[in-house]
């Protein structure tokens, strides 16, 4: 009885701590989403209102009628993140396989890729700005997607290698005995088994590319601006319009949140298996 009472008390305390924790950690996000749905009058009300009649005015103004082009920025973000994911897979799958199975480049190669993480992105913005201008890649979806691939490579590459490490080698050996070449083994044995890994890595890369800011800020001017950069510029360019700013920010943070809610376990598994070892 005593132990039971203690257990109940314990779980009540635990719940209180967790609810307070969630409040502290999620209130900034919740506040933004609430603002996006408040009318201008409710936004200005003192004290702040938590119960109000939700309106879609700010979304409509930011994305449709206001002439701000945030609809286009949203599409740009989607294109950049998708393209960057494709480039990432193309650049890293085969090499990750070579590192996992043949230990290409030894430990040094892997370490060099991981070490890239310690290079501040600001270092790369300077040459990229000039070189991408010269190559015609500045202010293009492709250019920003490539820059994002570089930023995400040190995170995604080790994850891919760990996923390949987990595929039993015996299957490949059996396929080789059956007369498959290396490319045949890759296509018929490794890639199908790697599919969960590819899905996890794609989500992770998509989210990180969607969230990236500095590279896109430097490399975009008119055509390829993603929504994060657009939202950041909003404050400077259009003065104080809190409702529209909140609506744009809500649209910018929602896609990653939806992906996390739907595919949490994929993402957790991917993130925790590669980065740190």
């Amino acid at each position: 009885m005593n132990k039971r009472a203690r257990d109940i008390l314990f779980s009540i305390v635990l719940w209180i701590i967790l609810v307070v924790g969630v409040l502290v950690f999620l209130f900034p996000l919740v506040n933004t989403i609430l603002l996006a749905f408040k009318s201008d009058v409710d936004i200005a009300s003192v004290p702040p209102k938590f119960i109000f009649k939700p309106v879609l005015d700010h979304f409509q103004k930011a994305f449709v009628t206001g002439g701000y082009q945030f609809d286009r920025y949203f599409v740009n973000s989607f294109l950049i993140a998708s393209l960057s994911t494709l480039i990432m897979l193309g650049v890293s799958i085969f090499t990750a396989y070579a590192v996992s199975r043949y230990n290409v480049g030894g430990q040094g190669f892997m370490l060099q890729i991981i070490a890239l993480r310690f290079f501040p992105p600001i270092l790369f913005t300077i040459p990229f700005y000039i070189l991408f201008s010269a190559m015609g890649l500045r202010d293009t979806i492709v250019g920003i997607a490539i820059a994002h691939t570089l930023i995400n490579l040190p995170i995604v590459f080790p994850i891919l290698v760990s996923f390949i490490d987990e595929i039993p080698r015996e299957l490949e050996e059996a396929a080789i005995i059956d007369g498959c070449g290396t490319l045949g083994v890759l296509r018929h044995v490794v890639l199908p088994l790697l599919l969960p890994g590819i899905v996890a890595v794609s989500f992770i890369n998509f989210i990180f590319s969607w969230n990236e800011y500095l590279m896109a800020l430097i490399l975009s001017s008119v055509n390829a601006t993603p929504i994060t950069v657009g939202a950041g510029l909003f404050i400077r360019s259009f003065g104080v319009q809190y409702g529209e700013l909140a609506a744009v920010t809500t649209a910018a943070i929602l896609p990653p949140i939806i992906i996390v809610i739907l595919f949490r376990d994929y993402i957790i598994r991917g993130l925790t298996m590669g980065t740190i070892k």
């Binding site: 999620l26 996000l29 989210i207 969230n211 990236e212 994060t228 910018a252 943070i253 990653p256 949140i257």
Partner: peptide, 8 residues
Amino acid sequence: PMLTSSAM
């Protein structure tokens, strides 16, 4: 929060 953009 971890998968929300830092810029945002």
